Amino acid sequence: MTEQKKISEIIDLWKADKKQYVKRSTYSAYMLLVENHLNPAFGRKDHVEEADVQAFVFQKLDDGLSHKSVKDILIVLKMALKFGAKHKWLEYRPFDIQFPTEREKNNVEVLSRTDQRKVMNYVQEHFTFRNLGIYICLSAGVRIGEICALTWDDVDTDNGVISVRRTIQRIYTIDEGIRKTEVMIDTPKTKNSIREIPMNRDLLKMLKPIKKIINHQFYILTNDAKPTEPRTYRSYYQKFMRTLNMPILKFHGLRHSFATRCIESKCDYKTVSVLLGHSNISTTLNLYVHPNMEQKKKCIEQMFKAIR
């Protein structure tokens, strides 16, 4: 074993190494977790015991963080500790961390079919480029960063396809202790998020005449060479929904609504997963496939019918 180092020193060395291999947005997310959670809890230590990590988990859950958020923090901690063990700065033993049972399941928020029709009809009757973005999200299930980054060049009205190739996000950077933010355009969340989505007939009918006269390099939401960023568009969306007296629904609810309508229409799950750009089909199944009582009864009846 070489000379031991403090956890904060190991994390700094791990950061410098990791920066070479991950996207800037991913690196930024790691840095925030380190700055806000890991260094304050473990930075001064020269080793980490399982009991320390378990106590950390309970504390973070008590502070109101979700299970997923805490697990994300632990992933970063494990990467840094494994890096330290590789260079013999500390000994790493895998943790067996317990999480309390989650008794409340978060329901996916979606628009009802009636409300979705109302929103889409309103956009058709009150066309603006920003309203168009809401219509596209309901028709194609794109994320807010993806719609903000969409240009007219990504819309192929000849073949009726939208190509999702970029995303816009505001990332936080920490440079010598100074926090700042910047807007960046990057490739989407994962390689699966780079995808082609067919347009329905109504959307295609709306876009075809515009595409003929528009600058193809302009962003769709602004009809300008400069895009809008997600937090600005989110604010616009909230005002839009209030105007229509719609339920309070996060912007991501538009994507959930698209996916739910696909599942309700008996689309096969793999196709829905590909349309959404999910990394694997289990994400789609866990989020959207919840059989109702009617489906359960039908399943039981079919099973007994088969054994009669």
Rank of each mutant, 00 (worst) to 15 (best):
K6Q: 10
T157Y: 05
N159L: 15
P209K: 06
S257R: 04
T271E: 10
I263C: 09
I213S: 14
F99H: 03
D72I: 04
Y219V: 05
M31V: 09
L132G: 00
F129S: 12
T114H: 11
I194S: 07
K18H: 04
L111F: 15
K205T: 14
D154R: 01
V123N: 01
E3Y: 15
D175V: 13
A225E: 13
D46W: 00
R170Q: 15
K250P: 15
R24S: 10
I263Y: 11
E176M: 12
S28Q: 08
T114V: 14
L61S: 08
E264W: 06
I194A: 07
P188E: 01
I73C: 03
A149W: 06
T284G: 01
D153E: 15
K18S: 07
V108Q: 07
G277S: 11
S257N: 08
T187H: 06
I213A: 14
S66C: 09
D156E: 06
A41M: 06
H126I: 03
L61T: 08
R234Y: 13
N245T: 03
D154I: 01
D17V: 00
Q124S: 10
T114E: 14
S279L: 07
F258H: 11
T128C: 06
K180R: 11
I307F: 13
P188R: 01
W152A: 03
L81R: 01
L204T: 04
H216W: 12
K266R: 10
S28M: 05
R44G: 03
V164R: 12
S273T: 02
I162D: 02
D153L: 12
K19C: 00
V48N: 00
T114Q: 12
R179V: 10
T260W: 07
K6D: 00
G177C: 00
N215S: 15
Q217V: 11
Y288L: 10
R143H: 10
E49Y: 13
Q54K: 09
K266G: 05
V164Q: 12
I144A: 02
S8L: 01
T284R: 00
E35N: 15
H126T: 07
K6R: 14
Y92V: 08
A80C: 11
Q98N: 09
D96Y: 14
L111M: 13
I11P: 03
E49L: 13
L38C: 08
R255Q: 00
S28I: 03
G160Q: 08
I197Y: 09
